[in-house]
Design a binder for these strands. Sequence first.
DNA 1: AAGATATTTCCAAAATCATCGAAATATCGA
DNA 2: TCGATATTTCGATGATTTTGGAAATATCTT
Lengths: 106, 106
Amino acid sequence: MKLELAASQLESLGNPTRLRLYRALVRAGVDGLPVGGLQQKLNIPASTLSHHCRKLIDAGLVTQERIGTTLICRANYKAMTSLVGYLADECCADGACEERRETAEA
Amino acid sequence: MKLELAASQLESLGNPTRLRLYRALVRAGVDGLPVGGLQQKLNIPASTLSHHCRKLIDAGLVTQERIGTTLICRANYKAMTSLVGYLADECCADGACEERRETAEA
DNA sequence: AAGATATTTCCAAAATCATCGAAATATCGA
DNA sequence: TCGATATTTCGATGATTTTGGAAATATCTT
């Protein structure tokens, strides 16, 4: 994963409203939630919600599927998994860390 | 973990410069890096760097320890661990998810 | 106490972000 | 095709963020 992508994903989650939005989708699982359902849950104006959705979609953390007039939003778990991996990897690559020390001592 | 805290941590990592900074500290491990060392690695003005450090410290993701005139910065792994935990938990609490299905099927 | 080094704080400018009403667009069903 | 529902785009405004030079602060050494 490229640093720029990771940063844009973190930034998109780094807003309380968007984090609530994303978590609502995580909670919803594979069924996802329509934009309207999100609006009710979050209790914010439609246009504001739409902007927040767009940010998460642009960052690749959320996907949408149109079913008739409604748009179903879903958390993109694959993206989150690689983001978390990116945050964890390279731990202590340049120096010591407790886990490494334990490994080295063993 | 409270949503507001998670959001502030994600926001603080959601800037490319700060993410590079944080990752440099992760790479450095328990030894950490002095602010001056970070400045050389990132090649940015001292005042800009100081602002970014502050944000990460305020978010709880970085700690500092003064040794004489130099300030050693370190990644706060505990904070990162709970942030990652926060992102992962509640997965599919309201709906189905593939992993849950597998568990249910088993 | 004075000088040197490391870092922060002050201040201000430019850029970006968040917000939301109103108007526009998309899709369905009759 | 018309009306209804769902959602986005436009456009504008206030708030926040990012940036960095200059001055201030902290600590060590002599």
